[in-house]
């Protein structure tokens, strides 16, 4: 399998690194403290390809804690907090866009 680090990294705006937690699959974000958080607000935001590469390398190195790390775009709200940059990431953060057949 091609490691995500072997792929060419190009970012077009503020970005974060996200993955799923190994033990339960929960969506997690790489923090600036070299850890993970389920809270997007705590994600480290990078703005250059080099910084993105470094953050991704650090995330990928944690094979035990996280699965499938990748770089995702974010928008920065007026209060400075990152918000998901596309529909897929919005769904990953906010959940499905439909009503579940049961009360969650």
């Amino acid at each position: 399998m091609t490691s995500p680090l072997q792929q060419k990294i190009k970012i077009t705006g503020p970005s974060i690194v996200t993955a799923n937690r190994t033990s339960d699959g929960a969506v997690i974000y790489r923090t600036a403290q070299q850890g993970w958080s389920v809270d997007l607000a705590k994600a480290a935001v990078v703005r250059t390809a080099d910084a993105a590469r470094a953050l991704l390398a650090e995330a990928v190195a944690d094979d035990l804690g996280a699965v499938g790390a990748y770089i995702a775009p974010v928008s920065i709200a007026d209060d400075g907090a990152p918000t998901p940059g596309n529909l897929r990431e919005r769904i990953r953060r906010n959940g499905v866009t439909i009503d579940l057949p049961v009360c969650a």
Binding site: G25, A26, V27, V67, I91, R92
Partner: peptide, 14 residues
């Protein structure tokens, strides 16, 4: 190994 047991990783969870 997990795939041979029907375990995928999806957007929100396994």
């Amino acid at each position: 190994l997990r795939l041979m047991n029907g375990v995928y990783l999806q957007l929100h969870a396994y």
